[in-house]
Nucleic acid binder design. Structure first.
Lengths: 144, 144
DNA sequence: TAGTTTATGAAAATCGTTTTCAATATCTCA
DNA sequence: TGAGATATTGAAAACGATTTTCATAAACTA
């Protein structure tokens, strides 16, 4: 697990400590490729580790984002979600406005065009977010 | 002003009322092409119309979004922003992570590719958001 | 291992947003 | 036009997600 190393390196570099909670949260976070809100992950953890507090989960998720193993996302429902950043590459999201389904997709050509657009405005890109909102096949089929 | 008509039509259709506050807020909102948070617009209005309350500003911005003359945006700073939708067409955003500068840009080719990606997953697209985060020319020039 | 520093969990505080409610304004139609 | 019905307003309270506080516990350093 490369991400475990990346997290530990970050902790050391910042003079932070390796605690059992942080390791448990990291492990659980990486197990699934879901888009976790603090609440989601807290509830999932609570089943097995009832002692871990909500604040700790939230603080740890923020740490993940800081050290680059998680991305913070906001799909407009008022909750911040975190998802593991897989080393391979970036992906974007299709969000169903009816059932909430989230599908990930990749489109390298779009990435290229983004670079072009940024260059036209002399911007140095660090990151981006692209979300397409609409209705998934199932919801369309089910009618309104 | 086409947008004024669009707003009034919406109010009539929904059985809502045309009030002086709503007209003032609409006028002020359209005057500038900024990306207003409720707070921003409330403060701007307060200078000239100190009687207008925060809740009214917020409720009215939501109405603008509902009737299609404003778009709700979230650039990750924890505040929802509203911007007028100009009839011409859609645009996306470049956001400077250092100074907060927001630049609008259009890239029709990206829109095309989005349709392709959505079709591949049988999604019916209703809307999308694309934001590129990075550093603007001035901030890059100023060094870190 | 003692001493120092950081982390934890529970509760409280905070921030943006939304709702409540009594008073006020708008609209309808006689 | 003007009374009655209905929606809107503004202030304050409620709300939900996030962040902070603080005393206790755990991890690291030498």
């Amino acid at each position: 697990m490369d991400q475990v190393k990346q997290f530990n390196d970050y902790l050391n570099r910042k003079g932070l400590k390796t605690t059992s909670q942080r390791m448990i949260i990291l492990e659980t976070f990486l197990e699934s490729d879901s888009h976790y809100s603090t609440e989601d992950l807290y509830l999932k953890l609570r089943a097995e580790y009832p002692k871990i507090g909500y604040a700790t989960v939230h603080r740890t998720l923020k740490l993940f984002a800081e050290c680059g193993i998680a991305a913070e996302r906001n799909f407009g429902d008022g909750q911040t979600r975190f998802e593991p950043i897989d080393a391979e590459g970036h992906h974007d999201h299709l969000v169903c406005t009816e059932c909430g389904l989230i599908i990930e997709f990749e489109e390298p050509q779009i990435e290229e065009l983004q670079k072009t657009a940024a260059a036209a405005h002399k911007f140095t890109i660090e990151s981006h977010r692209l979300e397409l909102y609409g209705r998934c096949a199932a919801c369309v089929a089910a009618g309104d």
